[in-house]
Nucleic acid binder design. Structure first.
Length: 594
RNA sequence: GCCCUCCUAGUUCAACGGAUAGAACAAAAGUUUCCUAAACUUUAGAUCCAAGUUCGAUUCUUGGGGGGGGUACCA
């Protein structure tokens, strides 16, 4: 995680090793020198021992000597075990900084005609109930990865597959028909998705009652579940839906429309957007052709009852069903078809990122393996962006037990919490009520997003709403606050930013910050697709923290030197840019003033 | 049962196989002539256990313990 010092020192070290040991090594490992040692950057000599059998300290000494004599940036060196600590000149850092400072959108590659295209699938809700906290992690992760890919010069299509058909939506439809015929989002004052979700819950609870009374009549649990009138009605409805029954289809369309309108509100509040949509109702029949071809090529096999399977035991996995005995498709069939369709429709498509929870790790392993067996060459650029569950301090989220956290409720709570905290601090008298509402939203949602993104995607999250909105510590509001301070600083500084004098004498803390910015290519981290949002988020926090330390130190010193002041302003501006730009990657908005 | 995954201070999280394992919150103490104290400076505190691989292991391998997830006609 440091600047690519190879660019600067590669030739010198390489030439030396060639001359003396006849080995050709072209990349070296550098890291920032730990602050308890003297020096700025450190060359790791250990890895070289594989090629050169020599005492590491001796080798480090030799390389240090060569660099000191031949490279003007190196002003000194010392050796600790296999670590070669190099001191670099102020000039070097200043030049680095200046070259970076001139760039706009540092770390962002420009999209061109030749840029590859990738698809990022995320969100992918069911249309029978509103989005919940788990969806928020999904959306924030998927959207963030899409932005990171874009910064890498990749043309990204953000998409989702909407599970808009099936028994789950029929349950809501049955309940709505039976218990709430005239209720609409307009006359009930409920968001469309909330309304449909309400009837899903009504279905489940009425269904449970029916089961219980059947059990009381002497049926077994299994029998009761199967013969409950509501369930039979829902299954009938599904059949009618598949037969294209006009009435059912129009009811289905009406209720789905409500749900989409509700989802759109949620997405808008959350700040995510999509470029295309796939609907299960249009994709669920896909994939059967693939199955047929697979059977012909002996990749799949048919059982006596007519069901189709793939045997993956050679790859350490089980056998997997691909078509039911009645010839209908399963989830896997559909996903095979959808993947193929996407590559057919979008000839320039290079790969797909699937943002789906880790409970489906196995599914995607199998999906990718089957596609590979079928011989599609794009299989290797399919990636399952898997992420852990979100737990609450109060316990686990279980949708069946009604302990889920609704996405809309959570966002509102976060905004209210932000309001509460802001009002406690006061200092907001100068803002209009409209500005205030906007501010609360920015802070509340920034807190939520950062809290989720700062954690390694593969780990489970323990989400604590109160802790997330703390204005101190590793939180979104802290970074936003730092950004706002920098903006104020820049605004209040009338001094123009001029060329720097290389004779500048720097205080230790300033040097640290220059190093931070000198190693600004660390910001490339933001633009490297192999890094997760979590790494970026934590890096961002370090940056904000460094700025605070820097700021405090300067204030205490009371430095008034004019050159230093200009320099400081320039640095601050760069930090501000870094923060606001990377905030964008995280899906933050940052206020101009607070 | 089998497969996948996670386990680091009291708590929530960091650490390309690199130096004395970093932060934050909570705890204890201190700092206000200052571009906002929504800050800063101290102090105390951790790698689940056991082997192996090597110059070096929180990281890789194997075994064990604990949590979570998956497991053949649900998505």
């Amino acid at each position: 995680m440091s600047m690519n010092y190879n660019i600067h020192f590669n030739n010198h070290i390489n030439g030396f090793l060639k001359d003396k040991f006849q080995v050709d090594i072209d990349t070296f490992e550098f890291q920032n020198t730990r602050k308890e040692f003297l020096g700025d950057i450190t060359l790791l000599v250990f890895p070289l021992l594989k090629y050169i059998k020599i005492n590491p300290e001796k080798l480090a000494e030799d390389i240090g000597e060569i660099l000191l004599n031949s490279h003007k940036a190196v002003t000194g060196y010392n050796v600790v075990k296999g670590f070669l600590n190099l001191s670099l000149s102020d000039t070097f850092y200043l030049e680095q900084f200046q070259s970076i400072y001139k760039l706009k959108n540092y770390g962002h590659k420009i999209l061109t005609e030749e840029s590859p295209t990738m698809m990022v699938e995320f969100s992918s809700p069911n249309t029978n109930k509103p989005l919940h906290l788990g969806h928020i992690r999904n959306n924030v992760l998927g959207y963030s990865v899409a932005r990171i890919l874009e910064a890498n010069g990749i043309h990204v299509i953000k998409t989702q597959i909407i599970n808009d058909r099936g028994i789950h939506i029929c349950k809501s439809m049955v309940a709505w028909k039976k218990y709430g015929k005239n209720e609409t989002p307009e006359n009930s004052n409920l968001k469309g998705d909330q309304l449909v979700g309400k009837y899903y819950i009504i279905f489940e609870s009425e269904y449970k009652k029916e089961i219980q009374s059947l059990i009381d009549d002497g049926l077994t649990q299994e029998e009761a579940k199967r013969s409950a009138p509501l369930m039979i009605e829902a299954q009938n409805m599904l059949r009618l839906w598949e037969d294209n029954d006009h009435e059912i289809r129009s009811l289905w369309e009406k209720m789905n429309k409500w749900v989409y309108s509700g989802f759109n509100t949620t997405y808008k509040n959350l700040g995510v957007t999509f470029d295309s949509y796939y609907y299960e109702s249009r994709t669920y029949l896909l994939g059967k052709k693939i199955i047929k071809k697979g059977i012909e090529n002996n990749i799949f096999y048919k059982k006596k009852d007519g069901s189709v399977w793939v045997d993956l035991s050679d790859d350490g996995l089980d056998q997997k069903i691909l078509l039911r005995s009645d010839g209908t498709s399963v989830y896997m069939t559909q996903d095979l078809g959808t993947a193929l369709k996407r590559f057919e429709e979008e000839p320039s498509l290079k790969g797909i990122v699937y943002t789906v929870g880790n409970e489906q790790d196995y599914h995607f392993k199998v999906l990718f393996l089957i596609l590979k067996k079928l011989g599609f060459d794009w299989t290797k650029s399919l990636y399952h962006l898997s992420y852990g569950m979100v737990d609450l301090p109060s316990g686990k989220m279980k949708s069946r037990e009604g302990t889920v956290v609704d996405a809309d409720d959570l966002m509102n709570d976060m905004i209210n919490q932000a309001k509460h905290v802001c009002q406690e601090y006061g200092k907001l008298d100068s803002l209009s009520s409209e500005e205030l509402e906007n501010l609360y939203q920015i802070i509340g949602l920034g807190a939520l997003k950062y809290f989720i993104l700062k954690i390694d995607p593969k780990k489970n999250i323990l989400f604590d709403p109160i802790a997330s909105i703390d204005f101190n510590g590793n939180t979104g509001p802290f970074i936003q606050y730092t950004h706002a301070r920098i903006k104020t600083l820049i605004k209040s500084s009338s001094a123009p930013i001029r060329e720097f004098k290389t004779t500048l004498i720097l205080e230790p803390k300033e040097r640290e910050l220059i190093k931070l910015l000198g190693s600004y290519p660390e910001f490339v981290i933001l633009a490297r697709e192999e890094y997760s949002p979590a790494i970026i988020a934590n890096y961002l926090y370090d940056l904000a923290k460094s700025y605070n330390a820097f700021y405090q130190n300067i204030s205490v010193l009371g430095v008034e030197d004019i050159e230093l002041r200009n320099f400081r302003v320039a640095l601050s501006q760069k930090v501000a840019e870094v923060i606001s730009s990377s905030s964008g990657l995280l899906g933050f908005k940052v206020p101009d003033r607070m």
